[in-house]
Design a protein around this nucleic acid. Structure first.
Lengths: 277, 277
DNA sequence: AGGAGAATGTAACTGATTGGACATTTCTCT
DNA sequence: AGAGAAATGTCCAATCAGTTACATTCTCCT
């Protein structure tokens, strides 16, 4: 039973001042969720006891009770999707729901400016270095093969080659790291080293408490749903693909040329079966 | 500047207790918008002053100041649904919808017996061979690293090594191939060769017209949504993870032993940063 | 081992908030 | 016009919240 219904039920018995109060809280429920009795009294230009009497007339114990009710309503609005997940049962179905939810989260949270902040460095950099934690290898590979299709000078850093490879890094380059708890020591040191070399860092990680969030402003947080005994890398791969798609649109012509060239190479080496259209 | 960014900015300077506080308020911002200092202290299981110090460290005057900030954020979120809808019309939103739809498809279409048909060969095989097309490399890598964690004798076949590697294949083995139009010649020939050696083949491909559907009964069809100029590999990675999770449950004890061993190795080689409970 | 400094908790204080008792005003009906 | 009832406002007490000062504990380094 929401507030509007409660007010409607009591509406006949409301006094003039109480009607003014009702009008204000219906117009902006925020007054109820966040305000104090004094705030509301000032807003409605009445006395504090009138506010309390209003709450009682609606069936609450007092103002505090009414506020709790309003806050529950707001909380429900705010956290509906994530709670929905928790209520679903069945392991396969739940894993699927979590997965889709995390991807929905990704696309909801990524607005234009933010995507630009993450993607632009990768588009304009001289060279791009890709780092990843143990559980993010799939995303790093997706990033690497996608980015290689649309721009030159992309390097995937493996643990064994990093010392040698990173030597070529310089200001004007960009690095993108995929790393999540438990953060991989090697990825973090490499990222720090690149940062000190003047390389612009983009981080896909788990949240503001990540060590990478301290290294750069260009970070983005992903959910990490569970898939059986492991963390799912699906959202990370999705993120990698989104970034590749963005870079491709930014480098429109250059990317097209590269894609065509790769295609030609594949045709020449007879990589694919003949198409059947 | 939202709360996550503020926390990120201060994250290095946060003490252990303050990190716990940060984790709670990030998980559920409602604590900040509606809760009192005491509420939060109880939830985090710490003292009230620690909450206040946390607020100050983030740059607020005190807890009250931080709460006001959080409330403004919540108010903004409450009034944004109209924007969110508009946002979904853009190309980014559509890609996201396609992606979630394809994953929903995957989980809807995969019932228990079918999952068993695909997963059982991978669980009971002597050796597992992983093949993939050009655009399915991410899935193949996910499959490889996941399966390696839960069972022995897993081989990822790259183009250059296939002749040498496949020599070891024998009846009692299983192979899983990820390949989609345009099918990769190499992957198909390798799959055919393995089939002739008596290896059980599992195929993740695009549908009944796929050449792999002719090679084996154990095939499954995935949607392939577009992501910018490329095909998305997200559903394939999701599929790979589902299969790994299934194999893990089938090999319960053996898988656990392997996982533990890998963990121990990682700890011994100091691969990860210390955890911060 | 011991000491310095950071981290955290305890306890007390100040101010704000709620809810209720009581007074005043306003309305209505005779 | 006046009396009674309803509506509203004033004031106060009790509680609770936020903050600060200080004590204790923990950690790290010598």
């Amino acid at each position: 039973m929401n507030l509007a219904e409660l007010i409607a039920a009591a509406s006949e018995r409301l006094t003039p001042v109480e009607r003014r109060i009702a009008a204000v809280v219906l117009e902006d429920p925020t007054w109820l969720a966040f305000g104090t009795v004094s705030d509301l009294a000032t807003e409605v230009d009445t006395s504090r006891p009138s506010i309390v009497r209003f709450a009682r007339k609606l069936g609450f114990e007092g103002f505090a009770d009414m506020r709790e009710h309003a806050q529950r309503g707001v909380t429900a609005k705010l956290s509906r999707p994530s709670q929905r997940i928790r209520h679903q049962e069945g392991s396969l179905g739940r894993a699927g729901a979590e997965l889709t939810e995390s991807i929905r989260h990704l696309f909801d949270g990524l607005d234009g400016p933010q995507l630009a902040a993450l993607g632009d460095p990768l588009a304009r950099a001289q060279q791009v270095w890709i780092l990843s934690g143990e559980t993010s290898l799939a995303a790093a590979h997706a990033m690497f093969s996608g980015l290689t299709m649309v721009r030159p000078n992309v390097h995937l850093i493996s643990e064994h080659s990093s010392g040698r490879d990173l030597g070529g890094a310089a200001p004007g380059d960009a690095a993108i790291v995929f790393d999540f708890p438990r953060y991989r020591r090697h990825a973090l040191t490499a990222a720090t080293a690149l940062g000190e070399l003047g390389v612009e860092l983009v981080a896909i990680t788990d949240g503001p408490l990540s060590p990478y969030a301290a290294l750069t402003q260009n970070w983005f947080a992903l959910d990490v749903p569970a898939m059986g005994p492991f963390d799912s890398s699906v959202p990370r791969v999705a993120m990698a693909e989104v970034l590749v798609a963005y870079v491709a649109t930014q480098l429109k012509d250059e990317a097209q040329v590269r894609i065509d060239r790769t295609e030609a190479l594949w045709t020449a080496t007879d990589t694919f079966l003949a198409e059947e259209n």
